[in-house]
């Protein structure tokens, strides 16, 4: 039988993969993708808890679904702004490697 702990463990492993990607990779686009993985790991545990807490009507707790909806919206806005910054940076420096970008002002 699949328990709540299984979903939480899978979510934790996915979060760790994303975290390791942010720490280890030096390509700024891959770092953005790893951030998406971390946000989705949080979504998975939220939905698992919502399914776990069945309310009085016998349905899952839908507050978590609304929360996940907001997270997905914010993640979409974050990716749009982040990629626009990457494009602007690439125009100036012709690189997406974070170690080549060490100054705050060009």
């Amino acid at each position: 039988m699949v328990s709540l702990g299984h979903y939480l463990t899978v979510s934790g492993i996915l979060f760790t993969i994303g975290f390791a990607g942010v720490m280890l990779r030096r390509n700024i686009i891959i770092i953005l993708m790893a951030l998406e993985l971390m946000l989705n790991a949080a979504n998975l545990s939220l939905v698992a808890f919502s399914r776990f807490h069945v309310d009085v009507t016998g349905a899952p707790n839908y507050n978590a679904h609304v929360f996940v909806f907001f997270i997905i919206t914010v993640a979409a806005a974050e990716v749009a702004v982040g990629l626009a910054i990457v494009v602007a940076l690439f125009r100036l420096r012709q690189t997406t490697h974070v170690e080549d970008i060490t100054t705050l002002r060009f």
Binding site: M1, L4, G5, T9, G12, F52, T57, G58, A59, P60
Partner: peptide, 22 residues
């Protein structure tokens, strides 16, 4: 994360059945 999930009691329970269609 593993130690927290492993030590919590609710993580060992399986999901309750739904009495209402989703």
């Amino acid at each position: 994360i593993f130690s927290v999930v492993g030590r919590s009691n609710i993580a060992k329970q399986s999901f309750p059945t739904l009495t209402r269609s989703t």
